[in-house]
Design a protein around this nucleic acid. Structure first.
Lengths: 356, 356
DNA sequence: GCACAATGGGAAAACGCTTTCAGTGCGGCT
DNA sequence: AGCCGCACTGAAAGCGTTTTCCCATTGTGC
């Protein structure tokens, strides 16, 4: 007895949406003709009929049913954008670049926040596959162990004709953008070593992240080349966030008070470190301790002292990522290197004299 | 003779996507049964068949064709989110709230950046209507003159069964979230007047924006009540950005050097003003000039001095906006007030003694 | 003036799915 | 034992498009 009620009330809606059929009727033409007028087909339609259809469509405020269209064409104008955290300036910047290209190409962007859960990442790719999205952009850095579930989903997506671009991922058989992480790490090492620092602390993000690994290894590599050894206990792993950076800085200085320079593997953590040095540790920057970040988020030049950091052209990365996915599929997978650049500001200086 | 060939080769792509038909075949059941198993219908299917279908689906990595599904159900799990600028922390925060609720409700979010062009706003609503989106959230503040094109599109969208929530809009016949803009403005007036400021400059965003108007009027209203008159030439209109705020601050102080407090109508502009005071005007904050912002973006506590501002619970606004759109449609349109709160930090202090 | 190509319009098929409707086999009741 | 009803499966209709196929009409060359 309840099934009746349920079934009725479950019926979604009258859905009074205007259909092409109605437009055709209103214009006094066939369905086929109306379709030809409104969906820039290559078939010609008489001026006269064309106008009648256009007018009817405008009058009825007709917009074509995208799902129906997608069904018959088996493609859509949707692209997916996967990020770890929507409310992170790093991803906002990338997203801005993506949106720009999307606007120019009349594409719709589906934004998916994975909330740092790897499982959600694969799930979203599956859903995007279900949507028959044209492309997916993995903006968030990948994990060094390469999640197999994600790889499988991407494979299925590609098999279906979807395009994929990954940013800072490893071992994924898709077009990949390689930001100058390693190179940026090297530049930081050079800068700090050049200033005369020898006791350098490093605040890492999750070591499982590809970009963390690249930045760290670039840094260690170049530091070693320059004769600066970063001791194991001068490195701490932290959340890739402001709070993570703050806590890590405190931990690090409690352990090794002699540190004169701090390299945080992204700006968010550097901001936290700055706060910790100022509020928790009472050290002044750059007089007592130099601080370097990574990414060059807009905030970097608004803090005091302005943060020395490595600039990654994030919007450009977003643009390139989508463009790559929109380009020829033939010589795939390709990789595209995007260079980074050290930006020296006020947060770095030579180490204090070892007053004795 | 050619028709044979054409029919095969004209098909857009092999589109090797797995269909439900194939799953059914693989499982040795009918299309209907497979559908019932995979689309949580209310009909029962034998344990045995259920397993066979599930197994086949997993083996073939089947995901249902969302457009096809949308076509028959005439609804989707898509919600649209319209913002003015993707790369603006204000919208990132709202978006984060929206994404959170979207994740919990298994919805897909289409993010549309209008790049401050009102025309794009209406166009995106139309495209979202074409997509049969379930709801649209207008996160960007509306214009006081209420764009008629947008209103029309929204009406059409609603007529089709779509839900709409607007944030800080006026005269739109849709559910609306009213952030405590006016109230926040009042709190700022009280704070500054209480400190003893009488020469207060205001850096406004575009006056056509509803939220700018609300913040400004709340401020002026309360200031007047407390006997503080903000002269016309102490108010400047600027871009709602950091650079806009910076330029405006310079302009304002050139014109009226006697100002002892500055109220920027959002944090981005306040940041610019801080930079201008420090780098261009050589005034110290808060000793010479007090500065107040609005929004309480995460940066606000990272700048020096930390910014006194009005906190708007942006993520909460995002969550509420989507929840509102997902709720009952019956008692619509509704309005939901979200309170703001003054957060006093280090950028405000009593005015300097009028040294004579 | 007539076969023939070219042009443009309309009927109908197909896209992949959900859901209705009609069936089939089975157990329980009188 | 026969019938009804129950529980399930499968065939088929339809969602709103695009696109094919076919037809009618017109213009063209001999």
């Amino acid at each position: 007895m309840q099934s009746q009620v349920n079934r009725r009330s479950a019926r979604p809606r009258p859905s009074s949406a205007v259909t092409l059929q109605q437009v055709a009727q209103d214009a006094g033409v066939s369905l086929a003709t109306a379709s030809r007028v409104l969906s820039d087909s290559d078939r010609n339609v008489t001026q006269e009929l064309q106008e009648r259809v256009l007018e009817a469509a405008a009058r009825l405020r007709y917009v074509s049913n995208a799902p129906a269209r997608a069904l018959v064409q088996s493609t859509t104008s949707i692209v997916g954008l996967l990020v770890h955290d929507v409310n992170d300036a790093y991803y906002s910047a990338i997203a801005a670049g993506v949106m720009e290209v999307a606007r120019d190409h009349k594409l719709l962007v589906m934004l998916a926040g994975t909330f740092h859960e790897p499982a959600l990442q694969a799930e979203y790719v599956a859903r995007l596959r279900a949507q028959r999205a044209r492309a997916v952009i993995l903006a968030g850095s990948g994990f060094t162990d390469g999640s197999p579930a994600l790889a499988q989903e991407l494979e299925a997506f590609a098999a279906q004709g979807g395009r994929v671009t990954a940013v800072a991922h490893q071992n994924l058989p898709v077009d990949t953008i390689v930001p100058g992480n390693r190179e940026g790490g090297r530049a930081v090492a050079e800068h700090l070593a050049g200033l005369g620092h020898t006791e350098i602390g490093v605040i890492c993000g999750p070591l499982a992240l590809v970009s963390v690994q690249d930045r760290l290894h670039g840094f260690l590599e170049r530091a070693a080349e320059l004769g600066v050894v970063v001791q194991e206990h001068h490195r701490v792993e932290a959340d890739f966030t402001r709070d993570g950076g703050r806590a890590a800085a405190v931990r690090l200085f409690r352990r090794s008070p002699g540190i004169t320079a701090l390299f945080a593997l992204n700006d968010a953590m550097a901001l936290g470190a700055l706060a910790a040095l100022r509020d928790d540790l009472g050290r002044s920057v750059p007089a007592d301790v130099s601080v370097v970040g990574f990414d060059d988020l807009p905030v970097a030049c608004d803090v005091t002292p302005a943060l020395t950091t490595v600039r990654l052209p994030l919007e450009e990365i977003g643009r390139r990522a989508l463009l790559l996915a929109l380009g020829d599929a033939t010589p795939s997978p390709r990789t595209l290197a995007v260079p980074s650049r050290l930006v020296v500001r006020a947060s770095t200086a030579p180490p204090p004299r070892t007053t004795g």
